[in-house]
Computed example of a mutant assay.
Amino acid sequence: MEYFNFPKEWINSRNIPKETLYKFLNADEKLKKLFIENVERIRLEYLITYNNSNIEKYVSENERYEEIQFYVIEFRKEGIEEKIVSLLHGIIPKSTIIELRFNDIWKISGAIKKVTNSRLKLEEVITTPWITNENKEFIESLSCRNFNSTNLKTFYNSMIDRFNAVKSSKILGVFSLNDVEKNKEKSEKIASIQLEIESLKKELNKEKYNFKRAEIIKKIKKLNEELK
């Protein structure tokens, strides 16, 4: 997480025992096995509060940004990381940023959480694709000097914007912090249409009747026009 360029006052480095997580997750043997086989270690790396940063808290009726916790999870293999990170976001009440490491590549994840009737509600998990040193623009954008530090919510959302921007760039081909929400919607729509086209192509390959094949081809053509 050195790319954040956080001051040393924010360092809070310590290992998190897996047994602690099992307790909060009410993990059965199947879930414990999932962690044991896939996760090497989990660490809390940084902690940002008003006391060590002078960044104001943000508390409203259904949002609480009183501190931001930064975790690193090292994986033994890939493929299950997004399931595990969603589980962790769901049990940690504080605002969390989680870096997922596998060999020389990494993802980074945040989550939008709301408090409803004193209960934590996980609204959205935002996880980047696998990042390498080739993602220079994204990595450079992660320096904390670039973040909005009006309060801990704006600081946190500065990171979320960057995660969304790099996700969109995988489809749109350009990393941009302008119109992040608009680009997010556009890239999600493109991805949805592409999935629908692939599904129709599979359906077309299985279809024997010519009149039904013609209908499927017509749908694919319409979707390709929408993509353009």
Rank of each mutant, 00 (worst) to 15 (best):
V174P: 06
K18C: 06
Y22T: 09
N133M: 10
K153D: 02
G79T: 06
D161G: 11
K219I: 05
K170W: 13
V166R: 00
L120V: 08
I36A: 10
K167Y: 15
W10V: 10
K32A: 06
S143D: 13
W106V: 06
K113Y: 04
I220R: 02
N183R: 07
L200M: 09
I68F: 04
V115A: 03
E45I: 07
V125L: 05
R213E: 09
L172N: 13
E19M: 10
T150G: 04
L120P: 00
W10F: 12
K202T: 14
E81G: 00
E29K: 14
L47V: 15
S168E: 04
I91L: 06
Y3V: 15
K94E: 12
N146T: 00
S109G: 05
T96G: 11
T49N: 04
N15L: 13
A214G: 05
A27T: 01
R43M: 10
I97T: 10
F6D: 03
P93H: 12
K208V: 14
I131L: 07
F4K: 03
C144D: 12
N164G: 11
A165H: 03
I108H: 03
N15E: 15
F175C: 01
E203K: 12
V85L: 06
V85N: 02
N210Q: 07
G79W: 08
Q194L: 13
K83N: 12
N5F: 02
K94P: 01
G90I: 02
N224W: 08
N12D: 09
N38G: 07
K206A: 13
A191D: 14
E61G: 09
K30Y: 10
K57S: 11
N38W: 04
T128R: 00
E40V: 04
L142M: 04
I131G: 02
E81T: 00
K218N: 10
G79C: 10
R162E: 07
I11A: 07
F24K: 12
K221N: 15
K32E: 08
I216V: 05
E140F: 07
W130I: 12
I108L: 06
I48F: 07
Y71A: 02
F211S: 09
K94I: 08
E203I: 08
Y58M: 13
Y3K: 13
T127C: 11
K208Q: 14
F6M: 02
Y3I: 14
N224Y: 14
L227Y: 07
I126S: 09
N62V: 10
I91P: 02
G173T: 05
E198I: 00
